[in-house]
Design a protein around this nucleic acid. Sequence first.
DNA 1: ATTATGAATGTAAGCGCTTACAAATATGTT
DNA 2: AACATATTTGTAAGCGCTTACATTCATAAT
Lengths: 342, 342
Amino acid sequence: MGKTRSAPTLNDVAKAAGVSTATVSRCLNSPKQVIESTRKRVMHAVESLGYTPNFAARVMAANRSFTIGAIIPTMDNAIFARGLQEFQDQLRESGYTLLVSSSAYDPDIEQEQIRALVARGADGLLLIGFARDAGIYKYLEQHQIPSLVAWSYDPTMPRPSVGFSNTDAMGELAQRVISVGHRRIAMISGKTQGNDRAQSRVEGVKQAMADNDLDADALTLIETTYDIEKGADAFRQLMDVRPRPTAVICGNDVLAAGALREAHRLSIQIPDQVSITGFDDIELAEIVSPALTTVHVPHREMGRKAALELIAMVEGKSEGRSICINTRLVIRHSLAAAPDLS
Amino acid sequence: MGKTRSAPTLNDVAKAAGVSTATVSRCLNSPKQVIESTRKRVMHAVESLGYTPNFAARVMAANRSFTIGAIIPTMDNAIFARGLQEFQDQLRESGYTLLVSSSAYDPDIEQEQIRALVARGADGLLLIGFARDAGIYKYLEQHQIPSLVAWSYDPTMPRPSVGFSNTDAMGELAQRVISVGHRRIAMISGKTQGNDRAQSRVEGVKQAMADNDLDADALTLIETTYDIEKGADAFRQLMDVRPRPTAVICGNDVLAAGALREAHRLSIQIPDQVSITGFDDIELAEIVSPALTTVHVPHREMGRKAALELIAMVEGKSEGRSICINTRLVIRHSLAAAPDLS
DNA sequence: ATTATGAATGTAAGCGCTTACAAATATGTT
DNA sequence: AACATATTTGTAAGCGCTTACATTCATAAT
């Protein structure tokens, strides 16, 4: 309800220090413009009144907030956490504050959150992946809010992105799976609807299959939400498919962890009977047993570079370049040669 | 730089619709106050201009933002993710937007984030744990910002909290550990400095020991940051202690997972040689093998109740009650009888 | 027809801050 | 000493919105 009522304002400080509001404002924003003696007096008044500037007012007057917004699909697992933490740290160093909200993978909520952040004066936005309504991009343009896509990289897109090629990264992993002899391959993917990362990863698998004269259309594919439980469910389903797949490629480590857990329950030996792979190389991947063969994504590097680039865009120093981050295969025990190859 | 420059304002809409700004404002905020015909006209203008209200201005004028802020210690692991997701969902349903920031367990950063959120017009704040500088609480009072502590519960504190007694919950677990015969107990705790949850958990263990005529001061205690790696490091150290502890109680599941991993590496059989326990019951706990005996915290319930209570406070319907959430022991395979008990 | 009543709309005063511009003061030059 | 120039400070006009209050208009009661 009533909030700032009793909080001191710029005016109060000005009076207390016996100067004009302009001088106080300058003390706070460009101290070198005001002479030491008065600055001291002003700062003292600020201290003793416990004054904090009202951001809404500042944003409105200056049309600048030093705030960056990020909308991520979920906070519910570690996928975005690490990269975002680094993103925030980098922003902080440059004097920006990060505000995060999550969309629960729902495009409508995402749109709402984007508007909320823009309306709140965000100077720039970090978005995950490219896929979203064109109207949103138009909206951002109208408000002249620079935005940067992360967790994806596609230089052919009109908007800048910092990330990696999900297709290539997953392709490389699938190639490895095929190289060690697997022919009957199944995949547990995240929902591809409105999720270009998930789409590209499926694409990567299919491409690798095609490259090796396997019928990509024969890929047994289950789409599900990114949940351990769901990964487990999907794995169980896949184990009923005949002929049974010898390798299950998962859209990320969370799904793979679920698959692994279900394999334990079903007493299916991993990797002797079935190989399982993940994607992301979050901590989870190393902890499960057998440890997951996966694609390592340098989340921290991505977060840092995204922050730097977005700041450059916000400050008008960059038009928005796309930056490619290199992923690499991490071979651990969950992948082995296909059993029936011998 | 210049952002909202070309975006339409209330004034533009008013002109386009041939009404006053007051009417447009009313259309947007209390539609029933304006007659159907004009409302239609106004809404049409809003649509065709692609108007979105400027939040900074709205906040400043109305002194109300429908925004709730949350400052969590870290986004880097799952501990807070789940509860926060539910918190956000509940807020959304009630028409509030959640803005999150993370403090990296640093009190100074936390303070800065709190100020940032308040300055940005947050109507209320969710804080994790009680321990923080008194100045911050004074600041919140001065600005009349309701705040709610979560992940802790202590009815004796002057401020409302939604959570559980970390002492009791951990005490119950420790009691169980002792009951199955363990006498040489070690603990890997999170940094207790400025973290009342960590402190209370240590307290819980000590209390349980004292209750069972064990020397609580003899508890071998390692404090570390909440990292899998650190948990592993600490476990290695503990295994060098002589006489070697038979049970390692960890401050949370993340540390326990690290301990477990290290045990694997050291070829120490869990739970045959050493028992390990966690806290939180995040997904990780069930995935590692052996699965962790831990304390289940109903994060979702906590998130939901926290949201409801905080909204009530913001809307002046509650003075701020404290709500206790029940935790429960989850016994899995990582805890067994002490080996040398026989 | 006149007036009381209530609903719909308009008017305009802020909300707390930044910043262009003006004024005052200090510094340096000749 | 007189002036040009640079530095420091003040003045006041917004930024886009909400809302108390005033006004207008429609309806109903007399």
